[in-house]
Each structure stands twice: as structure tokens, then as C-alpha cells.
Design a protein around this nucleic acid. Structure first.
Length: 609
RNA sequence: GAGGGGGUAGCUCAGUUGGAUUAGAGCAGCAGCCUUCUAAGCUGCGGGUCGCGGGUUCGAGUCCCGCCCUCCUCACCA
């Protein structure tokens, strides 16, 4: 809605020609920063420290005055009052929309009035509006995100769940907030795992045929054999490395074998990706950089970053004790192995350059597990020095890492036989259990519909469990947790959507219709829901800041809970048309924000369940 | 040894970078609510020396110092 219609609707005495703020916290912060230097005691460095408040006190609070008072040994309440007066004097803060007061030791509290809540709900009514509002956050920056980047040559197991799920959520979040995003699946297809596999195939005298229906199982078995062999016998490990070196130097036989292996595992990966709805923009695996690593070696040596050590080409970082050549436990960044072949570091450096030059990346986001932190520290350091020495601009580099999925025993999750749990069996079981739940709760639905719901809910539950806790935490996998449909879970959120949609369906209208004449929120549960709806912006801020999707999960759960309370307390279908219209509006916004939020997590909501 | 993660209610976890006499959710437990919009829901109750000991200040789960427990990583795996 336009500002002028707000003025009419709210009966403003003074002309209200201000736009409705998408993100009030950000705007209040800017306003305080602008006004503060005009107030005695404040300077241009003033940080208002604006943040969402405990709803019992206010919607937002500014804590920054306390720091100023402490430094200047002034009276915080007096300073805060002076600042508030100055802000009010500018006329830029409509007091029909915000109640402002100084509270406690010197906080400035901002409380949104029902008029403000109503105005926001009318203005920010659908995903396109939120997207536009959020677009400022990334401002069209070119971002390359590296995920899920599996090591091929083996079946996808439970360890591949997190990069798919977290990577997709982070990608969607960044994109939603206005980045120009390239999703790059940087598959591990040029490393020693292939040497191991080629060795095992050779020793078994096996004839690999990508067309064979058992090809994947064969690879799985052979890889396991090779893995056992090379772990037990250093000579076998050397043989595996030699096979890799042969492959990398262009040996025709190994190259042919490699192509067959890649074919088999790509087909298998794609089957999993399809079920997760994962589509990357490009697949530029390590092998893509096979002809680009020589430039890395030569440049690093030319600028004096890399040197020979024990036959390998390495980079030391003497400015970081752990990575220094003087460290007790030596941990150089090995960019070329002593047998001349490339490794993770070589291809990652080549990849960094390619992303900077070809994709013109302003920012690169790597989604991998936490055990690779040292690698990325070294990569980022090396990249910074290399780019500086060659007068290139280094993109912002971020490592979005995650913890391990543990079994019930607290160790990395395994099947009873000790093999890793296959991702496919996880999906299948989640779907089966979801089907049993739908059948028990909604037996009246057709089997086809129950199956479709089970598929959506099963995958959603699997994803959500992975996303709901802070990504840096390890978590224990349990079917009970996955099965749960209460609390902070995907089924709870999806069910909230179902209940909203049901109201519109029963009324025979589309979601978003029937809002004409809606008044501002009034009852306590309406107001609480409206305030929670506005909290979407803060949740986006928080999740984007450290690329932690669990903040979005927490928010969506709180929103669904606020809707639950509203739903129980305030009947939508009442006779009073104004009340009905505003409740339909609240329902529509809840529905849309829940659906948008779920889709940011790559969870597809359903109509019924 | 070095670096990183974690230690908050019986269990699983939040806690927006030092803020509000009362540290929050959800499970599980107990007690209620369906002839009215999907009960996969809602309402209420009980449950805590925030690992331990110091310190910094108006104010600490959060910052500093010292311990304890646990998980992960550390020369050619990715």
C-alpha cells in the first residue's frame, strides 16, 4: 500500500509520506547514526547497537548509548533522552508507527504500534516484495558457492547428506538476499581415491561396464577392497598413488577406466540429486583443472611462495605458527606431491583463480565438513598472498563448515556391519515412515496422495533435522527425532501451512484474497502473530550473517507456534467483515512467509497432510 | 603438544556478539481442551549452582586468566 493510503487509513494528523520500512531495525539504526552526531556527547562513530528486543519490552532496542555513557562517564539515561528528543525533532520517525521510550539503565526502546503492523502487512504481502526488500543485503554481488562436491567413486552415504542439505539452504538464502549466484559442484574426481579404485580393479582383473546394472555395487565393493588393502600395506598405497600419477599424466588405459568410473558414479549421484531437487549450475570437478595446475605451480614459485620440501612443492606460512616451517608438527600446504601429481590443494588453488577470473566472483562460499578447516585456512592464506603478489583482487572467501552426523553411540554413524549408511536407504526409510504416519492420521486421503505427501514429508523431515541445529555442532542421528512431528520439526511447520490453506479452501478463495477492508491487528494473539511476521526480516539478517540456516528454522518454528495460538484463540470465519478480512490477511501472510521460508530451506510445502 | 568444535532442564537444543529482579524452546512427565476454519493442534504446571575456580563492571551463559571432561584435525586423503 502507498504511504498516502496509510495516512488515510490510520488517520494521521501530519502527512505520512514515508515509505513502510521492510526492515525497521536497519532503518532505525541508520536514523540513529544520522542524528547522533548532532547531539552533545555523541560523535560520528556512534554505534546504536540496534537489535530485536524481548517482546515483553519492545520490538527493537538500541543499547549503544550505554557504551557512550561509560566512555564519557555521562549519565546514560540523560544521553538517551537527548538522543530520543533529537530523533523525534527530525520528524523522520512517525510516532503513529513507533512508540519510543528510554528504559532501564539507558536502553532506547522502539515498539511497533498496531498501525505499523497493519501497514507492514499490507505493504509486504508476497515473496516478490520480500525478495525486493532483502535484495539490498547482497546487492547483486557475484557469488560462487561450492557444494555438494562429493568424492565420486563410491556410493553416496549419510556423509553426503549435510553438504547437499546445508549447501542448498545457504545457496537459496544468498540468492534470496540479492546475490548473483553460481552453484558449482566441484566433484572430487581426480584424487587418490581413483588411484585406489584403479588399483583394486586391476588386481581383481575386473572388467568394468558402466551399462551393467550392478556397476555401482561392483565399484562399491572394489573400492572397499582397495581401501582395506592400501590401509594395511604402504606398498599398495604407493601403487595406488602410482596409478593416479599415470592417470594424471595421460595414460590412455587409466584414462579410459577413469571415464567409466566417473560415468557410473555420476549416474548414481544424479539419482540422489533428483530426489533432493538439487540442480547446480555447473559441474567443474577437480579433473576440469588438470591443465590449469601448472600455472599455479609456476606462479607460486615465481613469486617465492612455494618451495621444494622432501620432494614435494609446498607453501609455508611463517606468519602463522602452526603452518610455519619451524612448527614442531610440520603442516605445510602441499601443492604438488613428490611424484608430481596434483592434490586437493593444487586443484583448489587453480579453482580459486578460475572462479575469480572466469566467474568474476566477488565472493566464494565453500560448504564442507569441519575437518577441512585447516585446509581452508591454508588455502585462503595462500590465495591472499598469491593474489597480492600478482596484483589480483581476492574474492571474499568463506568456509561454511558443518559437524558430523553421529550414530546413537556418539561415533560416526555406521550400519551394524560397519559400512556407512547409504543415503538412499535413509531416504527410503524416512519416506516409508512418513507414509505410515500419513496413513494413520489421514486415512481418508487416496493412496496416491498419501504417497506424494509421504515423499514430501519424509525428505523434508530428513532435511530439517539437519538444518535445525547450528551447523557447527555434531548431532546424533535418531529415527525418533526424524519421525517426530511435534516441536521444531518439518511436519509441524508443514502442518501449520496445511491448516492455513484449509481455511481458504473451505471459504472457496485463494490465499491472499478477501483482505479488502482489513483493519489493524487488535487481539493479543493477532498482535503477537503480526509482530512475529515482521520478525522475518531479522531472521534473514541473522541467518545470512554467518550463513547459518538454523536461525531461519528457529524463526519459522516460532512463527508457526504464534499462528497456532492465534488459530486457537481467534476464529477467522466470523460475521464482522473487517475482523474477518484482517484475520484472512494474517493467515495469508503466515502462509506465504512459512512457504517462502520452507522453500529457502528447500522444503516443498503440501496442500494437505 | 598445536589448532578447532562442544559442555545450558531427565533428553535434544536456542540464546542476535556484554543487557532488562524471572536464562528460553521442543521432547519426555503431569493436568485440561475436538457437535464450529485439519487435534500432525492449543492451554496450563513442574523441572537450572549455564563444566569448575578466579577476574573485569552499573550488568557475565556471553569477555579475560587458570583448570576439568569430550569430539575432530595435524606431510603428500579429499
Amino acid at each position: 500500500m502507498s504511504a498516502s493510503s496509510l495516512a488515510e487509513g490510520a488517520g494521521c494528523n501530519t502527512p505520512c509520506d514515508m515509505p513502510v520500512w521492510f526492515n525497521p531495525a536497519r532503518e532505525l539504526d541508520a536514523l540513529l547514526r544520522k542524528v547522533a552526531p548532532t547531539v552533545p556527547g555523541f560523535d560520528a562513530e556512534f554505534n546504536p547497537e540496534l537489535r530485536p528486543s524481548d517482546p515483553r519490552h519492545a520490538d527493537f532496542q538500541a543499547n549503544g548509548v550505554l557504551a557512550v555513557a561509560k566512555k564519557a562517564k555521562g549519565n546514560p539515561r540523560a544521553l538517551a533522552t537527548a538522543l530520543v528528543d533529537a530523533v523525534k525533532a527530525t520528524g523522520e520517525l512517525d510516532q503513529k508507527l513507533f512508540q519510543v521510550e528510554v528504559a532501564g539503565p539507558g536502553f532506547i526502546n522502539f515498539k511497533l504500534t498496531p498501525v505499523a503492523l497493519g501497514a507492514w502487512l499490507r505493504e509486504y504481502r508476497d515473496e516478490s516484495k520480500w525478495r525486493a526488500g532483502a535484495a539490498r543485503m547482497m546487492g547483486g554481488r557475484k557469488v560462487v558457492i561450492d557444494y555438494p562436491s562429493p568424492n565420486t567413486a563410491k556410493q553416496m552415504h549419510v556423509g553426503h547428506l549435510r553438504p547437499i542439505v546445508i549447501g542448498e539452504a545457504v545457496a537459496r538464502l544468498i540468492e534470496f538476499c540479492g546475490a548473483k549466484l553460481t552453484r558449482d559442484n566441484h566433484i572430487g574426481d581426480w584424487g587418490t581415491n581413483f588411484g585406489i579404485l584403479i588399483l583394486a580393479i586391476r588386481r581383481a582383473g575386473f572388467k568394468l561396464d558402466a551399462q551393467s546394472p550392478t556397476a555401482l555395487d561392483d565399484l562399491e565393493r572394489l573400492y572397499k577392497e582397495g581401501s582395506v588393502l592400501t590401509k594395511a600395506d604402504p606398498a599398495a598405497m604407493d601403487a595406488a598413488r602410482a596409478e593416479l600419477a599415470k592417470l594424471q599424466s595421460g595414460d590412455a588405459e587409466n584414462l579410459a577406466l577413469w571415464e567409466e568410473i566417473v560415468k557410473v558414479s555420476n549416474i548414481a549421484c544424479q539419482r540422489i540429486y533428483d530426489q533432493f531437487g538439487l540442480k547446480t549450475d555447473v559441474i567443474l570437478g577437480e579433473s576440469f583443472y588438470r591443465d590449469k595446475v601448472d600455472q599455479v605451480y609456476s606462479e607460486l614459485q615465481k613469486v617465492g611462495l612455494a618451495e621444494e620440501s622432501e620432494g614435494a612443492l609446498v607453501v609455508w606460512h611463517d606468519d602463522e605458527p602452526r603452518f610455519s616451517r619451524h612448527a614442531e608438527a610440520k603442516m605445510p600446504f602441499i601443492v604438488r606431491k613428490k611424484d608430481g601429481s596434483s592434490n586437493y590443494a593444487s586443484t583448489d588453488l587453480a579453482t580459486l583463480l578460475y572462479r575469480a577470473e572466469y566467474f568474476k566472483a566477488d565472493e566464494i562460499v565453500y560448504v564442507t565438513d569441519g575437518r577441512q578447516q585447516d585446509h581452508f585456512h591454508q588455502l585462503f592464506r595462500t590465495g591472499a598472498k598469491w593474489f597480492t603478489a600478482t596484483k589480483r583482487t581476492l574474492p571474499r572467501l568463506r568456509h561454511v563448515w558443518f559437524g558430523t552426523i553421529l550414530g546413537e553411540d556418539g561415533k560416526a554413524i555406521k550400519t551394524k556391519s560397519g559400512d556407512p549408511v547409504r543415503l538412499q536407504s535413509l531416504i527410503d526409510e524416512a519416506t516409508e515412515r512418513a507414509f505410515a504416519a500419513v496413513t494413520a492420521k489421514s486415512p481418508e486421503l487416496s493412496e496416491t496422495e498419501r504417497k506424494a505427501i509421504a515423499k514430501a514429508v519424509g525428505i523434508a523431515a530428513l532435511r530439517y533435522v539437519d538444518l535445525a541445529s547450528n551447523r557447527t555442532m555434531d548431532y546424533s542421528f535418531s529415527w525418533d527425532k526424524l519421525l517426530a512431528f511435534e516441536g521444531n520439526t518439518a511436519p509441524y511447520l508443514m502442518y501449520a501451512v496445511v491448516r492455513v490453506r484449509s481455511i481458504f479452501r473451505k471459504n472457496g478463495i485463494e490465499v491472499g484474497k478477501g483482505e479488502e477492508g482489513a483493519t489493524d491487528p487488535e487481539t493479543p494473539t493477532e498482535i503477537a502473530l503480526a509482530r512475529k511476521l515482521l520478525g522475518f526480516t531479522a531472521a534473514l539478517d541473522l541467518a545470512l550473517e554467518d550463513l547459518r540456516p538454523h536461525h531461519l528454522c528457529t524463526y519459522l518454528h516460532e512463527l508457526a507456534a504464534a499462528y497456532g495460538a492465534f488459530y486457537a484463540a481467534d476464529t477467522v470465519n466470523v460475521d464482522d467483515p473487517a475482523v474477518r478480512a484482517r484475520r484472512l490477511m494474517l493467515c495469508a501472510r503466515t502462509c506465504a512467509i512459512l512457504e517462502t521460508g520452507l522453500r529457502l530451506l528447500a522444503i516443498e510445502p503440501v496442500e494437505r497432510m
